[in-house]
């Protein structure tokens, strides 16, 4: 029923998204003149290096930012709705911890057996690391699903997901404790998150998974709206709560697992963006909220990537620090806003 507002919100978001996308292509450690940039983008004959920068470095990075931002934001939204908890995010199920465990095992445990050679072979951004992370994420996802078939309520799943997260986190700490500093460092660098490591080749694998997940998320708007009321209310209007819970966990697991595998764990986007989208739309209807969350996620990720490039022109900040520095104030703002809302007599 917010049709009047939604009418200008979506064109506006689309405009910002396009601007942010081109902004992310233009800004970077090497400054491009607008002429060079458009020459390269439109395939006109020009400097081969600039063409390479735009097409092979920045375009995959910008596309990754869009995929990761919208995918993580969607996961955050689905988790917040499923658990009816504003502090839920894509990582509450422990799936990204599973991914880090996979990477930690590969990077650090392999250094015990093969020494540095293995670390070199599976160096950062290599497909081996991606596969290890994916395997870790999938194992935790199947554990969570196995549990959620057996328990009746979502809160138990939330708690068990967090337990999986803590346990895998502890194993990662142990691995770090017993590993040599080089291996620990290459693992730590992975945890900072990096969307520039995703090449055009990687995108051929990442993009279909994320796009499939996004479509699935968009199609879940009806059960998500019902689940928002609470599980009993959803059941009495005919929602098969258990089935949709598992579908939501699978979609979240695949999205979070795939994105984390390629980019490392990116914090806060998933938690903060759905709140941002709700605040912009002033609606909890997933028909509008889901697409708005996807667009806001993509925009925020692109902006964070631009910010990560700018401050020291030839140094790039880890994307995770930028998203967290951006995300923390948003979460604080949401909490303050919620508190105001609970008090009667204040508009």
């Amino acid at each position: 029923m917010n049709t009047k507002k939604t009418r200008w919100i979506f064109p506006m978001l689309t405009g910002i998204l396009v601007l942010a996308f081109f902004g992310d292509l233009v800004f970077g450690s090497i400054r491009l003149s607008s002429k060079d940039f458009f020459d390269a983008l439109l395939g006109r004959p020009g400097d081969q290096n600039i063409s390479y920068i735009v097409w092979s470095l920045r375009l995959p990075k910008a596309i990754t930012a869009i995929l990761a931002g919208s995918g993580l934001a969607l996961c955050g939204l689905m988790m917040q709705t499923l658990f009816r908890n504003p502090l839920a995010g894509p990582f509450v199920l422990g799936i990204s911890s599973g991914a880090s465990l996979g990477v930690a095992l590969l990077v650090m445990a392999s250094s015990w057996f093969g020494g540095h050679a293995m670390v070199q072979v599976f160096s950062y951004g290599h497909l081996g690391m991606v596969l290890a992370a994916m395997a870790g994420a999938l194992i935790v996802m199947f554990l969570v699903i196995w549990v959620s078939v057996r328990v009746a309520d979502s809160v138990s799943i939330l708690i068990i997901g967090m337990m999986f997260g803590s346990a895998t986190g502890a194993i990662v700490s142990l691995l770090q404790y017993f590993s040599d500093p080089d291996a620990v460092k290459s693992f730590l660098v992975w945890t900072f998150g990096d969307i520039s490591a995703v090449t055009a080749e990687h995108l051929k694998l990442l993009a279909p998974i994320v796009i499939a997940g996004l479509l699935a998320g968009l199609m879940l708007k009806k059960p998500l709206n019902a689940l928002m009321l609470g599980e009993n209310h959803a059941r009495v209007i005919g929602v098969n709560v258990k089935r949709f819970r598992i579908i939501i966990i699978i979609v979240t697991g695949l999205l979070t697992g795939a994105i984390t595998a390629f980019t490392g764990p990116i914090a806060f986007v998933g938690l903060a963006v759905p709140h941002l989208a709700r605040a912009i739309l002033k609606s909890s209807d997933h028909k509008a909220l889901t697409p708005a969350t996807l667009m806001c996620g993509a925009i925020i990720m692109l902006i964070c990537d631009i910010l990560a490039q700018l401050p020291a022109s030839n140094q790039v900040l880890p994307i995770n620090t930028v998203t967290a520095i951006f995300g923390a104030p948003v979460v604080i703002w949401v909490i303050l806003r919620n508190r105001r809302g609970r008090t009667p007599f204040v508009s």
Binding site: M1, R84, M219, K221, K222, N225, A226, M228, L229, G230, N232, H233, I237, G238, V239, R278, L281, K282, S283, S284, D285, K287, G341
Partner: peptide, 26 residues
Amino acid sequence: DRIDVRNLTVYQLVSMGRYPFTDWLG
């Protein structure tokens, strides 16, 4: 059971009663 959802209109909530009859896209 209390429903604690912000920005949910009366119309939207009542329309959920049609859930068992609308298609999967609602």
